[in-house]
């Protein structure tokens, strides 16, 4: 499975990387994000929704579980599993309908609900580096080749 490795040094750089990833996505793609609090997942999502010209703010779905955005010719479903504990809970919320809807699905805290995420999802792992810098390591595992010049 092709893997990609990036370092970003600001929220702006994380958003720019998200724009490059977004340009490679197809309808129905599932992005499974993992990484601790404040590691850049929501910032990355804001970059993705910006690419699809979503006009609203991309708010954290921690308390609402699922936020829907309607971008230019593309729906985006933003899910947060932070307050869940197993994949079956995600399934009970109707996740399969979303998978089959053609929307691009972004799942934060995907490791918590790993058993409800299809094997062909694109995996993104985020890590906050160091106490003083604002640097993030972002690892992307994609089942298909993405054109991301490194």
């Amino acid at each position: 499975m092709p893997g990609y490795h990036f370092l970003t040094h600001s929220a702006e750089e994380t958003k720019k990387l998200a724009l490059r990833v977004a340009a490679q996505l197809r309808p129905g793609d599932i992005l499974a994000m993992s990484g601790d609090l404040a590691s850049g997942k929501t910032t990355f999502t804001q970059g993705l929704t910006a690419y699809y010209e979503v006009l609203e703010y991309t708010l954290s779905p921690t308390f609402t579980y699922i936020n829907e955005y309607h971008g230019k010719d593309q729906d985006i479903i933003h899910i947060d599993a932070y307050r869940l504990s197993t994949g079956s809970e995600l399934i009970s919320m109707g996740i399969w309908d979303y998978y089959e809807s053609g929307a691009i699905i972004i799942i934060e805290w995907a490791d918590i609900v790993a058993d409800a995420i299809p094997a062909d999802a694109i995996g993104l792992r985020f890590r906050h580096l160091g106490a003083t810098e604002n640097s993030r390591e972002i690892l992307i595992d994609s089942p298909r080749k993405l054109d991301l010049d490194q």
Binding site: Y65, Y82, R83, L84, S85, S88, E89, S92, M93
Partner: peptide, 9 residues
């Protein structure tokens, strides 16, 4: 759940 989530089902 342990982090105060509501299990929807």
């Amino acid at each position: 759940t342990s982090y105060g989530g509501v299990v929807p089902e």
